[in-house]
Design a protein around this nucleic acid. Sequence first.
DNA 1: AGCTGATTGTCATGTTAGGTGACAATCACC
DNA 2: GGTGATTGTCACCTAACATGACAATCAGCT
Lengths: 169, 169
Amino acid sequence: MADVTPRAPGHPLAGRASFLLSQLGAYSAHEFGKRLAPLGIRPSHFGLLMHLSRGDGQSQQRLADAMGIHRNVMVGLVDELEDRGLIERRSHPADRRAHAIHLTAAAHGLLRRAQRVADEHEAELLAGIGEDDRSHLITLLQHLADHTGLPCGVHPGRANSVSTLGSCP
Amino acid sequence: MADVTPRAPGHPLAGRASFLLSQLGAYSAHEFGKRLAPLGIRPSHFGLLMHLSRGDGQSQQRLADAMGIHRNVMVGLVDELEDRGLIERRSHPADRRAHAIHLTAAAHGLLRRAQRVADEHEAELLAGIGEDDRSHLITLLQHLADHTGLPCGVHPGRANSVSTLGSCP
DNA sequence: AGCTGATTGTCATGTTAGGTGACAATCACC
DNA sequence: GGTGATTGTCACCTAACATGACAATCAGCT
């Protein structure tokens, strides 16, 4: 069934969407990490900075929940970004055990550069197909992500915690 | 540009193909690993068995090259599959330092079950979209994999070694 | 035949990201 | 005011990957 693949004869795995997604996903993540390395941050740092750029002052627990990682891991991410002077831990106005994480001025400049890197990465990844196919591909991938219950901006690399986050806003 | 995404407003990452591929790829790999666990093998074992099912008697080095992994890693994979009685190391007829890896009778039965698992995994992953979109998606993913120079049946998880293997046969 | 360099399989080791459990400080509730 | 839950932090463990070294064997050359 569905033997419409033009390169299936080589490997039986190369015609499976699940394998292709795994292969391309690992490549995309690895490549993005390499492109981001000169800026001194990793993809998880970029995700955290992106989250913060759309809402400062959240606690580490809230950030960890939003990114689908454990709060213990968030400690390390915040530590590293704080050492690089990109964020700072202020005292939370409403909860004295929590920290309010805020972006520094340097972070905004770096975020612009990182987003340019992400744009270049996206462009090169999609360089093989036309403009119409790109939007169609993104739509299909979003349908798959929606149907499998994957939360919205959650980092790849871990895939449990399909908890309270239902679909995208 | 290209703001055709219906769920883009939530997260700026959720509209990027690179992020979606990373997210879905990690989910697909992780989920496949969970589905394969009851059979006592991991996805890398499945890939090795699939390779062997299309050609017995190869040396570990050849298998490692074909799967895009280092020969040191192949030692562990062969060890584990040999302990489970799925493959056996025979003496290579033409090279006395190499081993000729052969599938056992038990491996063929397990491979059929594993392929059924892979079919189920594929079906559930693609359950959200229609039949036409599935083949279109696979075609698009194959184009991306071809253009980025990813070799054919190579496991995800590592993404260098875009060496001699050009395109798919 | 003998010698030199490359190759194969193996082992030991280090590195990295991710997960778990325990802890003090603080909150929320009754 | 007291009890359980929550937050941030720490120390430890695990899994996957890469690296370097080694003996055994091959391939090519003289």
